[in-house]
């Protein structure tokens, strides 16, 4: 093992260095304090967006199998703890043989914008 040379001990940080470090920390800590929650919000938002999109797609596929008629209420509230979603389906006749289906999924307890899916299908398959 090589011995430490005499007279070359560890040098303490200068005042300037300490001041710079503290300044950097002063800038970054608020950023960090902000970044973490917004990251969490983004993550939560991404998750809810994905769930809501999947829910909308599922409800859209389900519409293929429905025998849609007047008076059919297809609004519902879906609870996937800890979140809740309100799903609404709208059907619009297009000519005699097609129907436009619009699925809106509203994310309750949040201010996220709703997810909207729209498609067109034939009015009835096998009954």
């Amino acid at each position: 093992m090589r011995p430490v040379a005499a007279g070359r001990g560890l040098r303490a940080a200068s005042l300037l260095e300490v001041m710079v470090a503290l300044g950097l920390l002063a800038c970054i800590i608020p950023l960090l304090v902000n970044l973490l929650p917004s990251s969490m919000v983004s993550l939560r938002r991404a998750e809810r967006l994905q769930v809501a999109t999947t829910l909308a797609a599922y409800r859209m596929d389900e519409a293929n199998l429905l025998n849609v008629g007047p008076g059919l209420n297809l609004n519902e509230e879906v609870s996937l703890p800890p979140y809740r979603y309100r799903v609404a389906r709208e059907f619009y006749a297009v000519g005699a043989d097609r129907v436009d289906v619009v699925v809106n999924v509203l994310l309750l307890d949040s201010n996220f914008p709703p997810i909207r899916l729209a498609s067109r299908m034939e009015r009835s398959g096998s009954r």
Binding site: S38, S39, M40, S42, L43, R45, A46, L49, Q50, T53
Partner: peptide
């Protein structure tokens, strides 16, 4: 973490 969260949101 922030980038990943934002990417996740972007992907969603």
């Amino acid at each position: 973490l922030a980038t990943s969260s934002l990417s996740q949101l972007n992907l969603s």
